[in-house]
Amino acid sequence: MKFLAYAARRLAASLPTLLILLAGLFVLLQFAPGDTVDALMAQAGGGDAVMAAELRRFYGLDLSVPERLAAYLWRLVRLDLGFSAIYNKPVATVILERLTPTLLLMASSLSLAFAAGMVLGVLAARRVNGWPDTVISTLGLIFYATPSFWFGLMGIVVFAVKLAWLPPGGYGTVGAGYAGLRLMLDIAWHLILPTVTLALIFLAIYLRIMRAAMLEVLNLDFVRAARAKGLSETRVLVRHVLRNALLPMVTLIGLQAGTMLGGSVVVESVFSLPGLGRLAYESVVQRDLNTLLGIVFVSAILVIVVNFVVDLLYAKLDPRITATG
């Protein structure tokens, strides 16, 4: 019961933030030159004044800005995200369609980055200033400094064009009509390159955080005590140091949840994945206000949820922190 109350309190506290965020974005977008009808005419390669006026009426753009903002907020209260101008469908449907690829890509690359970053960070910390540390740190720096589109394109050139081992892009074999396990394998097959590309960027961050945290914890008194007890080095590292060094890593996941949904525009474009990042980008270019606000809304909720989970994880990792605190 205490836990539920805590959850409700956290959620209530984030509601004003959400409201300010959405209203702010709405106002901000009013300053962007041109509206969705201009974008549509640019895309169609022509149009005339009669058609433009007709379309503005159709999209409700002939109303004043306060009127539109009020209408939007009122719809939001009723949990209606509105209608997407580009897709001619309810925004909720559009976002839901795009959510799966994004979540799959993000979850898999974050897990990969987290796992690999943890292992490499521990290895580097264990042999600090030795050659494994130097190699790992240098590699991390290179990954971090290289733009992801370049990694992606090079991956495509080497593994898809030259070696023909992996598909060059897309989210599944088009028109293959796979189902069940075959479909899952097909999607996984298409996600290998994008996952690795995205993970390499995250990997560098996790690796450095892990290494730094390990080094810090290794110097603490309780580690000396554990060693003095006669525990093996591996046991000291895994049971005592690692568990404490994981706290900053978990914090980082919470922070990165915000970039999870929007942060992969580049990778989604390079690999032609139908994800939320690309949808957000298209919505800006096409001035599709409803869709963009919908994405912000969904992302905000996701961030709130992930941070909540992170708080719970803290408590699990470090009993000194309690969820009710």
Binding site: A32, G34, A42
Partner: peptide, 8 residues
């Protein structure tokens, strides 16, 4: 400018 911005 982007497309909508240019046309406007």
């Amino acid at each position: 400018r982007d497309a909508a911005g240019f046309l406007t």
